[in-house]
Design a binder for these strands. Structure first.
Lengths: 235, 235
DNA sequence: CGGCGGCGTCAAGAAAATCTCAAGATTCAC
DNA sequence: GTGAATCTTGAGATTTTCTTGACGCCGCCG
């Protein structure tokens, strides 16, 4: 990454802007991969592991905020948002959803480039790029496509179940506190719904574990929380 | 830092804005330290190690850009720049000098707060990689994952056992009084459960010590308390 | 020698946390 | 408004953890 040109994925449906970026960015030492839809952009993300994403919020196939959130479920790649909307609340929600910067159109190319450099500075410090799929035992979780397989059979998870699983994956190997899970799933408010959490864990086990009675990966740490056990190479 | 409110240093000479920030930021969970000049601000930086800096570019005693550059010579603290200047070139030079964000006055408090959260997110990630494991003999305690290994075999500890161990680790090498342990584990109230404490120590030894009869690390100091013996380099 | 206090171990009952099933709510699309 | 999917809540069974009491060991002092 440091030794070759940074790769930027541009997710933008307006052709003129895309053309503009396609022309400008390479002049400044970046490689560019384009996508006109969110789905295509996310596919690029998963396959190419770019160093940065430029994301237009006004995409045809998906709500812009949801794109940010979905990327953030599994990737920490820096996201620079472009948007025609100037409303402060739009900026706030986008930034809180996980975007790293927010530029309103029309923007100057110079400022965009400078902000890209800032975002890449941050990204460069980050450790090895994350994998787009998580594997453990005979599980396989395709984080980009939001699909889960057990022994090559696809398993359907409800939204909550899936989010719970991604939180555990994000902290794989570590114990995740009840409180932490509750906060990530339901927000700071409902830090009381312990019981609900247990039920969802139970459901996940029923769907993913061969023998839900004796979990192989979805371990409970009594009095503390839950932990996703990773494969141990030596075993 | 994670356990207390983030500290923000505000370097700003305009009193109204300073007053405004002094009023708003604490309402959103931040501690604030103010400086009206660059020199004072830099002094605060060096002494307090804040989590973030809000910097006005129009300071009386120093050119704004130089402030950024000077801070960056020795600190990576996130810097959010406020400026009345809208010129694109000003933004670019500030960002390239090391600023993490750039807001032009007048700015909305909501957007400022959102961008502060982004900058703090980055800062937190940078500070995170602490070697959070304790080693002694053939023990290895992964404090981040809350896991304990003895001779590469994972050992399961109950919540109380684990907390007891972490207290001793926190004071590794030093004697920890009975009273101190009781207070840390059960609160000021139950300073009588000496016997219970002994049982837990016993359990810990059974799980961690090769020969619980002759402890290598979980030493008892008769009449006083317990002590976690560290490795001695000379052995 | 014999009693005493501090300590460690064991085991049993009490307490707390967790799991599971199933019955209401709720949500969302149609 | 209806129905399907999902989420939440309740209750009882089950598991894990904590506490307590009994007992034995050891060193010390009278």
């Amino acid at each position: 990454m440091a030794d070759s040109k940074p790769l930027i994925v541009v997710i933008e449906d307006e052709a003129p802007i895309r053309r503009f970026l396609r022309a400008s960015l390479p002049l400044h030492g970046y490689r560019v991969l384009e996508a006109a839809t969110a789905a295509e952009g996310i596919r690029h993300l998963a396959e190419q592991r770019p160093d940065l994403v430029i994301l237009d919020l006004g995409l045809p196939d998906m709500e812009g905020l949801d794109v940010v959130r979905q990327i953030r479920e599994w990737s920490e790649v820096p996201i620079v948002v472009l948007s025609a909307r100037e409303r402060e609340s739009d900026k706030i929600t986008a930034l809180d959803a996980g975007a790293d910067d927010y530029l309103t159109k029309p923007f100057g190319i110079g400022e965009l480039l400078a902000r890209l450099r800032v975002a890449l500075r941050h990204g460069a410090r980050r450790a090895a790029p994350e994998a787009a799929t998580y594997e453990a035992g005979n599980w396989s979780v395709d984080l980009a496509a939001r699909r889960v397989f057990v022994a090559d059979e696809e398993v359907h998870l409800t939204p909550t179940e899936y989010r719970l699983l991604t939180v555990l994956i994000r902290h794989a190997g570590k114990v995740v506190t009840h409180r932490q899970l509750l906060r990530e799933l339901w927000g700071d408010e409902h830090e009381d719904a312990q019981h609900t959490l247990r039920v969802h864990i139970s459901q996940l086990r029923r769907k993913l574990e061969p023998d839900p009675t004796r979990p192989q990966h979805l371990m409970t740490e009594p009095g503390v929380g839950y932990r996703l056990r990773e494969d141990e190479p030596g075993k």
